[in-house]
C-alpha cells in the first residue's frame, strides 16, 4: 500500500511548500536518479514519508510528490531494464572472450 500526493494539485501560498518541508524535516535516506534529468528522493524525518522531486534536463522542477511508502517505486530496479541489462551483459562478455 502506498499513497501519493501531488504537490501541484494543492493551492499553496508563498512559503507554504517550504513550511511543509520544514515540518517533515530530513530523514536518514536520500537518493538521486539520473534519467531524463535528475530526480531526488528524500526520506523525510517522518519515516515512510518521502519527498520526490522530478527535474527535466534543464534542471527545472517538472513534478513534486509526497509519497507514503516503504521505498519509492522508482528506486527499485525495473524488470524491463533488468531483462535488457542481461542481454547487454552477455554481449559485453562475448566481446571480451571473442
Amino acid at each position: 500500500m502506498s499513497t501519493t500526493i501531488d504537490l501541484r494539485a494543492i493551492p499553496l501560498g508563498p512559503g507554504e511548500e517550504t513550511q511543509i518541508e520544514q515540518t517533515l524535516g530530513s530523514g536518514e535516506v536520500s537518493a538521486t536518479m539520473e534519467s531524463l534529468g535528475r530526480s531526488e528522493f528524500q526520506e523525510t524525518g517522518i519515516a515512510g514519508v518521502w519527498l520526490v522531486t522530478h527535474r527535466n534536463a534543464q534542471e527545472e522542477v517538472i513534478a513534486r510528490f509526497i509519497e507514503i511508502v516503504e521505498v519509492p517505486q522508482l528506486l527499485r530496479s525495473q524488470r524491463q531494464d533488468m531483462a535488457d541489462a542481461l542481454s547487454e551483459l552477455q554481449s559485453r562478455l562475448a566481446a571480451e572472450s571473442g
Binding site: M33, S35, L36, H54, Q73, L74, Q78, R79
Partner: peptide, 10 residues
C-alpha cells in the same frame, strides 16, 4: 530506461 519512462508518466 523504464525508470525514465515511469518518471515521464508521473
Amino acid at each position: 530506461s523504464r525508470r525514465g519512462f515511469l518518471k515521464f508518466c508521473a
